[in-house]
Write a protein that binds this DNA or RNA. Structure first.
Lengths: 227, 227
DNA sequence: GTCTATATGTGGATAGAC
DNA sequence: GTCTATCCACATATAGAC
């Protein structure tokens, strides 16, 4: 915490600690956490092999430091946009579209920015890694805000029962993650047909898809008793 | 190829080769490919430390052998269901819902079956791994069929321009993958609210969401010139 | 604070006896 | 075909000189 929470100031990147953070971010994003060795990071950052332990204490702590450095901005923007949704709705239920834009927008903009794209990849990779330690880092970084989002989402979609909400949230997260990382599967299949869209246009596409998904009529199912 | 393409016969699992395949499948699914050592596999399978190299030639070849063993059934079922979609449509465009059920159904059923769930996880993990070798294995296993699916999808959704199709396919793949693996994010947030649905009910939820997403009106955008 | 040297562990792969 | 013993590369981490 403390200084680590500040966004990176490029003017400071001559300092050892910052150089390590940025080198690690680059490599974790390209190779994944598990496949990146501290040696490779230290070579990329041009520091000696003891620096990471001196400054951070180890590999996992270094990853946490990267999250500490980056999550603040995205979460703050999301909070602020959700505030606006609530304010605009007054006593009424918030608008689904506005909630989705508040949740996806900061993430998509980050994924398309030069400074944010590496961290965006790291978030996506860690969130599906089987290693519980990595999952926990993602959890700690994002879940408080996600809970607020879901509370508002429930009010915007009162027609959805708990189980339908559960599975649609999977679809929502999956859609967001695949769009954020532009997972190479589709490029294999279509070629790069992304169309050179801006961040706001991509956001539009994502929101349109997910909004329609949440608005789809819910299947009537015989209710199972809850225990 | 050849014998490796047959589904596993549990009665044969006394044989060394089969024991290795099943142990590796279990561990790759739980820990991921990169985090699983051959030593751990060989301990789990109760074979000596040279067997994997003798039977498969190495770690990557072992993973390929698992894919060879498993992909046949899912792909065959998908092909057959797509055949039925085309037959039912005759000269008209195929139905979107039928295509989605043909594409998702075999995967969802596999993900909920005792024999298929480990391989399902492996597919999901490898398809987002940054290692190009793993991505290529997924590519080789699934992309021929995916191309056929997309060709039919285009006919079912003629209103979608290429760029919109590109981004919606990301949403589709993301939704399918997150539902298949039941990514733990949502369980953190909601608790397990999955509702104990059957495979067919989960398929219904997924298809409803994605169908609505594909049917959402496409944004009119100023057309960029293609080069 | 910075660096070299090294401790200690684990990975994939293989040689060669049986 | 099966197994033991081992090679060698590379991982994280640390001790201790400067």
């Amino acid at each position: 915490m403390s200084a680590a929470l500040q966004p990176v100031d490029p003017a400071n990147d001559t300092q050892t600690r910052q150089r390590i953070l940025l080198a690690a971010e680059r490599l974790f994003a390209r190779l994944g956490y598990g496949a990146t060795s501290l040696r490779a990071i230290m070579a990329e950052a041009n520091v000696n092999t003891a620096s990471v332990h001196y400054y951070f204490g180890g590999k996992a702590a270094l990853l946490r430091a990267i999250f500490d450095m980056r999550v603040g901005a995205t979460n703050a923007e999301r909070e602020q946009l959700l505030d606006e949704c609530e304010r605009a709705a007054g006593k009424r239920a918030p608008q689904l579209r506005g909630l989705l834009e508040a949740f996806f927008g900061p993430a998509i903009r980050m994924s398309r920015s030069a400074e944010g794209q590496d961290f965006n990849q790291i978030t996506a990779l860690c969130s599906v890694d089987p290693d519980p330690e990595l999952r926990k880092i993602v959890h700690d970084a994002y879940d408080q805000l996600a809970r607020r989002f879901i509370t508002l989402l429930r009010r915007a979609c009162p027609q959805l029962d708990e189980s339908t909400l559960y599975w649609r949230l999977h679809c929502m997260y999956g859609s967001m993650m695949y769009v954020r990382t532009q997972n190479g599967r589709v490029d294999y299949l279509l070629g790069d047909a992304s169309g050179g869209l801006t961040a706001e246009e991509i956001l539009d596409e994502l929101v349109a898809f997910v909004e329609a998904g949440f608005l789809a009529p819910a299947k009537a199912r015989p209710r199972k008793k809850s225990r």
